[in-house]
């Protein structure tokens, strides 16, 4: 991505403490529209904490986030989702006893309006909306490549397909930013390659992606820019080639005095 692309998200001095542990310390980073932004770091560096703060699951101690030129309301996950940030979870969280299709249809909730009375009376607008929800959900299942499993329960999908379903459900909320928390965790090489294709496709379709990942090869190959966290602090932020050679990053990963 060119450096000229406009900013989509700007996090300023985010801090979060759990008891005696400073999980995040003044983390600031900027994500540009249309890029794949990687967030890496050793175990316990605070990546997932940052994710959870950004998506409203944890309440930050200080700092704020500017998203699409507006202050982002971080007080609850549903507000963040409504503002246009969708996420997946490190340990997949699907609605296990709903079908794949229903899972994605739930994702449409935040962009649709029908209420109880619409549903009870089956008003024309409610039926039209319901049909649109179903259509869009099927499209998204096609997009991530699991349309043939549409009517299977989410819990019966293979691990890789569950990951794809979770992404489809996130896409259903029409995000401007898709935040993926270790999407390749537990995947075999073939599944990882497929996932990589999927994420590249998302970027080519204009979506901005924030990616937490342990698979360094995947991150280096896929991301436009990378930030590195260590002990809750950002120690580097640049294009992969530069980050890879940063002595602080090497020290953080390999240990030693740096």
């Amino acid at each position: 991505m060119s450096a000229a692309a406009p900013l989509l998200l700007e996090a300023r001095n985010i801090s979060k403490r759990f008891g005696g542990v400073q999980a995040l310390k003044d983390v600031s980073l900027t994500i540009r529209t249309g890029e794949i932004y990687g967030l890496i770091g050793p175990n316990g560096a605070g990546k997932t904490t940052f994710f959870n703060v950004l998506t409203g699951l944890y309440q930050r101690d200080s700092g704020d986030v500017l998203f699409a030129d507006q202050a982002l309301d971080l007080t609850s996950p549903n507000r963040v989702a409504a503002a246009g940030i969708a996420r997946t979870f490190q340990n997949i969280r699907l609605f296990g006893n709903m079908t794949a299709l229903e899972n994605v249809m739930v994702g449409r909730h935040v962009r649709t309006r029908a209420g109880v009375f619409g549903a009870i009376l089956r008003t024309a607008s409610q039926r039209a909306e319901e049909a649109a929800i179903r259509r869009r959900a099927l499209e998204l299942l096609h997009y991530v490549g699991i349309a043939h499993r549409a009517h299977d329960l989410a819990r019966h999908l293979s691990y890789g397909d569950q990951r794809r379903l979770e992404i489809a459900r996130a896409l259903a909320t029409e995000p401007k930013l898709l935040a993926l928390d270790e999407p390749a965790a537990g995947m075999n090489a073939t599944e990882t390659a497929g996932l990589r294709q999927l994420i590249e496709g998302l970027r080519n379709d204009g979506l901005t992606v924030l990616l937490i990942e342990h698979d360094v090869k995947l991150v280096m190959g896929l991301c436009d820019r990378i930030a590195v966290l260590d002990y809750g602090e950002k120690i580097a932020e640049d294009v992969p080639a530069v980050v890879q050679k940063d002595p602080k990053v090497i020290a953080a990963y390999l240990g030693g005095a740096g």
Partner: peptide
């Protein structure tokens, strides 16, 4: 939690 995360 997932329900909240998709905006419900």
């Amino acid at each position: 939690i997932a329900a909240k995360a998709v905006g419900i």
